[in-house]
Structures are given as structure tokens and as C-alpha cells.
Simulated assay, not measured.
Amino acid sequence: MKEDVLIQKYIERAYKALEDDKLVKALDLFSRANELSNEEDVDIIIEIALIYDSLGKSETAKEYYNKALRIDENEERAYYGLAVIYDEDELYDEAIRLYKKAIYISPNYHKAYFFLANVYDICGEEELAIITYEKLLSLNPMDFWANTNVGSIYEALGKNDLAYKRFSKALEIKPNNYLALFNMGVIAFKFNMINKAIGFYNRSIKMNPIYAYSYLNLAVIYKYKDTEKGIEVLTKGIENCEEVHFLYYNRSCFYTLIGENHKACNDLIEALNIYPDFLKYILEDEELEEITNMNCFKEFVENEINDK
């Protein structure tokens, strides 16, 4: 009986340490509780595994997850924990097997569905990813990231009505989230609702001024109908975002349209200073042919080659 009381005290202190983000202290306390319980308490063992994983000691975490499974072969948390480790190590086949095992044991395991869907998406299995996300959403329709992620897959596949449905739901869940606003801008533009798209992108920028893609997509709307406005948007993005090569590249294209070739050349050079591997893409862009034939650009490229 005394040992049971002491175990409980160690566990309570360990959870308090976790709340205070003192992982090593929590690990020590859970380990003491584990010893007193003869290493037979699955809950304690799972907590130890989680802490080791958080500390970057994934091999030790695996050992503890497997200890939990030797005690209870139907411990879904252990399968999920192992799946996460294999997922992070990009061993996706094993991660998929383990996520599915966790779901088989616990059919309402939300996190397992979410990360299984994500692995399918990474592996190019879009339809399986959609099925898995939609299953998760049937269990929890208010999952912001599931709505967002599956909406992005639908949008990439050109299933714009379904993307709109999921992006709208995500925005309903988090009305001021910059990514939800950005995604609604994307889909509104696809539906030719230009003013709505502009509104969504502007709101996205207000919510997160350092998300470069909002500036890019907003500027593209103005590219041909109000090029100088587009340049203004890209300039604002360059001022607010930290060295984003594609903003300089796109502003170069905009400057080219209004005959500001020297400014265009300077922006291309800046883009390459940030991301040298962008050169091949730039040289293949017919829109920039006049700029890449300028002496200032050729001299920069030659100097870069000679330096290497």
C-alpha cells in the first residue's frame, strides 16, 4: 500500500514537471514510479517513451514502446508512438502499417488517422489520403488541419468545389487564421471571384505579415491589369519577409513589363544571391530573356561561375 501511494506521488510530480516543460525531471520521476511498479504499468511506460522521443532519443523510446506492447499487445498508443518515430525517419511503409494497427485497435483514434493521411499524401497516394482525412472528419468535423490539408489536396487535383467546402469549414473554425484566409483567396481566384480573392489575401497579410505567398498571389492578380500595384504588393512583401527569392524574381518580371529593365536586373541578381540554384529556372523564362541578355546580368553570372 505504501508503495502505491509513493508511485502516485511520483506520477503527480512527474506530470507537474511536464507542465513546467522540465522533461528530464519528469523522466526521472516517471522512471522511479516505473521501478516501484516493477515495470508493469503501461501508462507509465508510455509516458517514459514519449519523453525519450521528445528528447531526441528515438531508439530508447522504441524500446519502451515495445515494452508496453509486451505487456499489452493491444496498446494502441504504443503502435502510434512507434509509427510517429518511423514517420519522422521517413520509413513510411512501416509508419503506415503501425498507424493502421493503432486505428484497427482504436477506430476513433483521431491523431492516427491524421498522420496516416499525411503519410499517404507525402507518398503521392492522394486518394488514400483523401479517404483517410474524410474518415477523420466524419469523427471530428471541427478538425482545422484535416479540413485544411484535404482541401489543399482537392485543390491540387482540380476538385475545386470540394476544396471550397473544406476551406470554408476551416475558415469557420478559425476565422482569423492566415492560412485559412490564404486558401480561401486561392479558391476564390479559381472561381473568378477576384474582389473576394483580393479581400482574403489582404486579410491573410494582416493576420500574418511574414507569409510570403500571400503577397505573391495577391500581386499576380494585378500583374497585367495594374502592374505598378502588383510591384507595390511585392515590395511590401520583400520589406516584411526575410530574403524570399521568389518575391524578387516575380518583381523582376513585373518591372520587365513596364520597361524598368535595370530594376528587373537588380532583382534577378538579388534572387540569385539568396538562392543560386534558381539560375536554370530564370534562364528558361522567356519573359525574362531581355533581362538575362543584359550585360549587368551576364557579368554577375560569369563572376559567380568564376568564384566557384
Results as ranks from 00 to 15, higher is better:
129 A>R: 00
254 F>G: 02
253 C>P: 03
286 E>F: 12
226 D>F: 06
101 K>I: 07
272 L>C: 04
91 L>D: 11
92 Y>T: 03
284 E>Y: 09
307 D>Y: 15
277 D>K: 13
172 E>R: 05
296 C>L: 13
48 I>M: 06
136 L>V: 04
19 E>S: 07
255 Y>H: 13
41 D>T: 03
196 K>F: 05
162 L>F: 09
107 P>D: 08
307 D>I: 15
217 N>F: 14
170 A>D: 00
187 I>L: 04
269 I>S: 02
117 A>G: 03
130 I>D: 01
150 V>E: 05
7 I>D: 01
94 E>F: 10
83 A>C: 11
289 E>D: 10
299 E>M: 05
32 R>H: 13
39 E>R: 15
268 L>T: 02
148 T>Y: 11
131 I>P: 00
126 E>P: 00
257 L>M: 11
93 D>H: 06
172 E>N: 09
298 K>I: 11
292 T>E: 02
289 E>M: 11
153 I>E: 03
246 F>Y: 13
144 F>G: 00
71 I>K: 12
193 M>I: 05
130 I>A: 04
267 D>C: 06
242 E>W: 10
87 D>V: 10
74 N>H: 08
200 F>C: 11
20 D>P: 00
54 S>P: 07
188 A>R: 04
45 I>Y: 03
6 L>Y: 05
124 G>Y: 09
253 C>M: 13
204 S>M: 09
47 E>Y: 06
54 S>V: 03
167 F>I: 04
1 M>E: 14
126 E>F: 10
199 G>I: 03
93 D>K: 09
101 K>V: 01
80 Y>R: 01
290 E>V: 12
133 Y>P: 01
38 N>S: 11
261 N>I: 13
72 D>K: 08
198 I>V: 15
161 D>S: 12
108 N>G: 13
237 G>H: 02
263 K>D: 14
51 I>P: 03
97 R>T: 13
77 R>D: 12
15 Y>I: 05
175 P>V: 02
146 A>M: 01
230 G>A: 11
305 I>A: 08
22 K>Q: 12
1 M>R: 09
185 G>C: 03
25 K>H: 06
175 P>N: 02
2 K>S: 10
251 R>D: 07
130 I>K: 08
169 K>T: 12
233 V>I: 15
209 P>Q: 12
254 F>Y: 14
78 A>E: 07
165 K>N: 13
135 K>C: 00
64 Y>F: 14
159 K>G: 01
82 L>F: 09
77 R>M: 06
245 H>C: 14
278 F>R: 13
229 K>I: 08
4 D>V: 08
202 N>H: 12
235 T>Y: 01
146 A>F: 01
268 L>M: 09
206 K>G: 07
34 N>I: 00
81 G>Q: 05
206 K>T: 14
230 G>K: 12
295 N>Q: 15
